[in-house]
Amino acid sequence: MVEYTNSPEVVSWDVTSKCNLKCSHCYSSSSIENKDDEDLTEEDAYRLIDELSDIGVFQLILLGGEPLIRKDIFNIIDYAVKKNLDVGIATNGTIITKEIAKKLSKYNLNGIQVSIDSPQAHIHDEFRSVKGAFHKSIEGIKTLSSEGNRVIVCSVISKINCFEIENIVKIAIDNGAKEFRTIRYIPSGRGLKEFKENAINEHEANHVHGELLRLKEKYEGIIEIASDHSTDFLENEMTQEFCSAGTSTCAIKYNGNVTPCSYINNEKYVCGNVKEESFFDIWHRKTMRDFRDVRKYQGKCKGCNYIQSCKGGCRAAAIGIHEDGYLPDPYCTI
C-alpha cells in the first residue's frame, strides 16, 4: 500500500508557460512564444486557491514559465495569502524592479527563488539563451533582498556548475540571499534534449554531496544551505526518501492538468484537470498513487535492497528517459 496524506502538504502550480528566457533545462519548455490562452484564468485561480485552502494544503509554490509575467499575479498572491496559504514563488529574477520587490515584500512570502546556473555570466546566459540574463538576475536578487524578501538562490546541478558551487554561494551571500539550494538536472521538457551532455555522473554527484555538507558548515549563520537529497541519492547513510511527489506533494500545470510532480509532462501521468473536476478528487485518484507503488517497479529496482528507502528515486527522471515511471531513475548508480 502506498501511504499518502489526505491532502498534499505542498502544491506547486505553473501559473503560466510563458517566459522571457528560454532555458535549456526548462521542464515546461517555456518561452515567450508560448501562448497563454490555456493558462488557468484568474477566476479558475481563485476557485483553486479556495479549494486548496479548504482541504488544508499548507504551501502553494508558484512556478512557471515566469510567474511575474502574469498580469494578475499580485491578485493571485494576495488572494492565496489571505486564504492562509504559505506562498512561495520561483522567478528568473530578470524583470524584478524596486516596485515589484516592494510589492512582494508586503506578503512575507516563504521564499522567492531565483535561479543562477553559473558564477560566470556568459555560461549562465548561454544556459538561459538570453544575453544579459545573468546580470539582470543578480540585480533582481539584490533588489528583492534589499526590500526584505527572503531570497533563495537555486542552482540546477549539471556539468557546467558542479565544481563551482561555492562561487555561486558567494554570489548569493554578496547579494543578500538567505538560502542556497540545488536541484538535479531532470530530463524533462527542454531538459530532455541535452540530458546526456549535462547530467552529472557518480563521481561528480559525490563531489557535490560533499561540497554541500562542507559549505553548510562553513557558511552556517550566514546563509542556509538546504539539505538536498538530489545529489546524495542512494548514499549509504540515507535514511529518508527524498521525493514526496504523489504522497504529500503534487503539481498543477499551467493548463490545469494535475501530475504528481512539476517535472512530469507525460500525458500518461496526468491524473485530472482542475478546470473540470475537484483537486481533492484528483489527489485521491488511483493514478496519483500507482506511480509511487514500488511493488510495480521493474528493471534493477525490482527486488533492490534500497527500494524501501529511495522509493525508486526520481520518477520524473525515469519517465523522462524511459517514458515509464516503473523503470529505474537514470541517476541510480546501483
Partner: peptide, 20 residues
Amino acid sequence: IRWRREVDEVCLYIPKNREM
C-alpha cells in the same frame, strides 16, 4: 500554527521556519 488531522496523526505546519 496550521494543522490538520490525518487518519492516525496530526500534520503541523510552522510558517515561521517553514517546517512540517
